[in-house]
Design a protein around this nucleic acid. Sequence first.
DNA 1: TTTCCCAAGCTTTTT
DNA 2: GCTTGGGAAA
Length: 691
Amino acid sequence: MARRFVLKPDPSAAPSPLTLDYAGDLNPQQHAAATAPGGPVLVVAGAGTGKTRTLIYRLAYLVETGTPPEQIVLLTFTRRAAREMLTRAAALLDGRCSRVQGGTFHAFCLAILRQHAPRLGLPAHFTILDAADAADVLDVLRTARGLHRAARRFPRKRTLQAIFSAATNRGLALEEILAESYPQFEAYRDTLDALQQDYADYKQRHGLLDYDDLLHRTLTLFERHPDVRDQVSARCRHVLVDEYQDTNRLQAALVTQFAHVHGNVMAVGDDAQSIYRFRGADFRNIFAFPERFPGTRVLKLEHNYRSTQPILDLANHVLGRATRKYEKHLFTDVRGGEPPALVPAPDARYEARFVAQVVLELREQGVPLRRIAVLFRSSANAYELEVELNRRNIPFVKYGGLKLSEAAHIKDLVAHLRVLENPQDAVAWNRILQLLEGIGPKTAADLIAWLTAARDDPFRLEERPFAPRYVEALKALFETLRAARQPGVPLPAQVERLVAYYEPICRRVYYEDYPRRLQDLEHFLALAEHAGDRAAFLASLALDPVELTALEAEARADDEPPLVLSTIHSAKGLEFNTVFVIHALDGVLPSGYALKDPDALDEELRLLYVAVTRAEERLFITYPMLRYQRYQGEYLTRPSRFIDGVPERLLEPWTLVEEGPPALPDAAPPEALPGASDGTRGDEIDDGLPF
DNA sequence: TTTCCCAAGCTTTTT
DNA sequence: GCTTGGGAAA
């Protein structure tokens, strides 16, 4: 064990006076956190208590007191969060924070792995698998073992991926995962064990890493090569971690490693806002922090600056319904405020009309669209609303919907880029080859085996007995790849070349709806223009997926910033003047999957808590009383058990009433719905509705 | 071996 | 409404 020697500040470097008024800008608790000396610090911060502000001032303080920005690491949950914090910090210190290392655990680990890939026997240009790619690999491996024709039902590829991912993220053996969550597959334990090994071998052989590998293999790298660990850690003189309650076991272990040399870690989080259990997050990490880092200074932020008291009253009430007790009671000095509203609507279309109309009224009153958010449990819940907003020309961005890089045609195109980067990338080859006429799974597998065997130039077709039914197509493919791979071809030109090649394929394969897809190819081309080099572009596509609607919103950049539609998960850490929580139904929020498991149910409750605490001034919780489900047709819903029976003084019931004579739904003019009346019980609907 | 067609099954949240 | 899987024709 090396001896630790602490260097005192260099006396010749006279400390310049601080430019920010830390004591004046922050409350005492925030100030204590922002200006804490080195060593481990845990900041337990309730919703809306200025957690982000504190972290930003912490960054500024560290920089002002002499820590070189490039030696500070800010780990966040999304790139969006990192970007926002760094921008705000840069604004405070006019740019002096810009060189802070920031990003997600995954992105930070990727950078480390890139640098040290050979130490793990990986090619420097390894490529990254998203969840769908990982499932595709497993599909191939499962077929290779003949498991697809097993007597008893074998897990489908997405399930396999989920099982293996859970095992990695939670640091558990397959056996434990099966016992806990997949008892129906326990009979396949040995087979699954073998398949897991196949998967690991396959990735190693073809230079592939999935999301979990980014974390897991970084830890392995540190374990096997302590010198790398020390080198990385020495450059992390201060580690700041946001949303610590949502770290999983691997991430908590990584934090320890990053902070190994200096022990300067600040973790910020709120156990009541832990909402990522499904991907291995463990809120107990936050309580274990002081044990993990002896000498931890624990600070609490309790004073809420965001919401009005009525909103906090509801939030406190919601949290009080949890099985587990939280020592949280949010309070504020913000006076007054409307009570949150509970709005039952006859069906989802009415719900959408209500939201759209209130949004327009608020805009009239001067609330900008971007300060209003509509939140929901799952992306499909917003379908009717999207239709309505489009109909009324209200611009919106939707976060948490389909990502550009998840669309089939974009995956096709990206696969081409990936083989340029990593010719061993067998999943990408598999995708590319099967796009060609006359090539199916079998031929693709044979070709891949040949392609990824060691050859001088993986992009040349030598003599080989190719079947005539596809040889021309194959030649065209290789010609394109070789041309795009010429040294000196800039990324946009590479992409342009690939798009030109791919376009006819796209028309053929997606003949029903290719026009829309061709548009996306244009977007993709535009993205490549500002992307840096190919490796960086691929990494950002994998780790920082672009929302499809965000692209559209950008296309109309001169318009006003759009209304925000978001899953509750994606809205974490954000705040809005007005928040709508739609589809607050039993079976939706809480999700139907969570009903049997008390822990899962608690997480759903925390989800509602997160949603509620996003609101500053106005909060509407709405739900449709009638729903269409694909199979069952329409049926009566039950409001979420989390809002059922909440006292009316905390959540005021509203009733929607149709104005004037009943109109047919399709003919209803946009403004037909009047403002809500008040007072009456919420479950009564005026007659005259077309049901 | 590929491709097409039909039936079955399932569907959350994200890096 | 969509993906996935199985079966049969080309």
